[in-house]
């Protein structure tokens, strides 16, 4: 029994964290809002290139297809770091979902380009047709991986109608249901892609939550009212302690779900559902708390908090919100007939 990353996995995570801390500060997140005054997508793309040079983009692609063949345990930490930085690009969708998915579909040429960092892939597998990062992507994957007999389509080049998100960096696009070409995937590959997306989303939410909590803790330590730092007030302390509690008990569930996925365990779907439910709730709680303890300064677009908070408000509902995930857990516990799930 050993509930921890090994040293290689920890080192890779550390390297990604260092890279993003240096190369993806809030100014770059703002540069990732297409159409905004500060938009500078070329600058954002340079971060992508550096992730590609590290091998991160092809990390989940099997070695036989030119990737690193790393499992979910090795990758959830990287995705948490992408969340912490609020990276305004679909690292999770490209590296964690599209890489293995395109490899399973036999799209060898595309996989090679993806692993080389030449392909940004946006993906939405929930049947909504609303694809995040469509506006900055080179290819899109859309469709319904949850429906019985569902299918996924590849759109290259991307074809979509732009949509405005509360989080401009999400660069949404609406995709027509019949656009693109159907990918050659069996039911197991579809299910696996969904689980990876849900788990990857959970990992990103953890990182977003950690960044928001750190920002809030720093702020209440500096900000003075009534002659003292507001972080001395118990009303503030207790909210932040509860926010940390939620994150600290969601994080191990994410790592355990990654291990279950890598093992192909029978409970993997349930474990992913537990992870996403906890991570969604924790991130929403932290975002609300961080906004509240800041007061009015955080209710602006000039202050950086909104860059992370908006990603949480969007991300918590994507890939199955907490209620939906808990319904999956109910089914696994025999509290619901499986066929009632959709």
């Amino acid at each position: 029994m050993r509930f921890a990353l090994n040293s290689d996995q920890a080192a890779l995570r550390e390297a990604v964290r260092d890279l993003l801390r240096a190369e993806c500060p809030p100014a770059v997140v703002r540069a990732g809002w297409p159409g905004s005054e500060e938009s500078d997508l070329a600058r954002v793309r340079r971060v992508w290139d550096q992730l590609g040079e590290m091998g991160v983009l092809g990390a989940a692609v099997p070695e036989a297809d030119g990737g690193l063949g790393l499992g979910a345990v090795a990758l959830v930490g990287l995705l948490e770091e992408a969340g912490r930085a609020a990276l305004p690009l679909p690292l999770m969708e490209t590296a964690f979902v599209a890489g293995p998915l395109l490899a399973a579909a036999g799209e060898a040429a595309l996989v090679e380009r993806l692993a080389a960092g030449e392909l940004v892939v946006g993906a939405a597998l929930d049947g909504s047709g609303i694809v995040p990062f469509a506006q900055v992507a080179d290819a899109l994957i859309a469709g319904d991986a949850r429906a019985p007999g569902g299918e996924l389509r590849l759109l290259r080049p991307p074809a979509f109608a732009p949509l405005e998100s509360i989080d401009g960096a999400r660069g949404l696009g609406r995709v027509a249901a019949d656009a693109g070409l159907v990918l050659d995937l069996d039911a197991a590959a579809l299910a696996a892609a969904w689980e990876r997306g849900a788990l990857g989303a959970a990992a990103q939410l953890l990182g977003l939550g950690r960044a928001l909590l750190a920002l809030a803790a720093d702020y209440v330590t500096e900000r003075r009212q009534f002659g003292v730092a507001i972080g001395t007030f118990q009303a503030v302390k207790h909210q932040l302690a509860d926010a940390l509690l939620a994150l600290e008990f969601a994080a191990p569930a994410v790592l355990r779900a990654a291990w279950s996925l890598d093992r192909g365990a029978g409970d993997a779907g349930r474990d992913v559902a537990v992870a996403k439910a906890l991570a969604s709730d924790a991130a929403l709680q932290v975002a609300a708390t961080a906004l509240q303890v800041h007061g009015a300064i955080a209710y602006t677009v000039e202050y950086d908090l909104h860059l992370h908070a908006k990603r949480v408000w969007a991300g918590a509902r994507a890939w199955g919100d907490a209620d939906w995930q808990r319904t999956r857990v109910a089914a696994a516990l025999g509290l619901l007939p499986e066929e009632a799930l959709r």
């Binding site: 029994m1 050993r2 509930f3 921890a4 600290e248 008990f249 969601a250 191990p252 569930a253 790592l255 355990r256 537990v274 439910a277 906890l278 209620d323 808990r326 319904t327 857990v329 109910a330 516990l333 509290l335 619901l336």
Partner: peptide
């Protein structure tokens, strides 16, 4: 009612995972 039961079950499971991580740290 179902959702409340599931939340309680999830939290017990989360406490188990947290503990396994913590014991790994203690053992180290």
């Amino acid at each position: 009612a179902r959702d409340r039961v599931v939340r309680a079950w999830i939290d017990a499971d989360a406490y188990q995972q947290f503990t396994l991580q913590q014991v790994t740290e203690i053992a180290a």
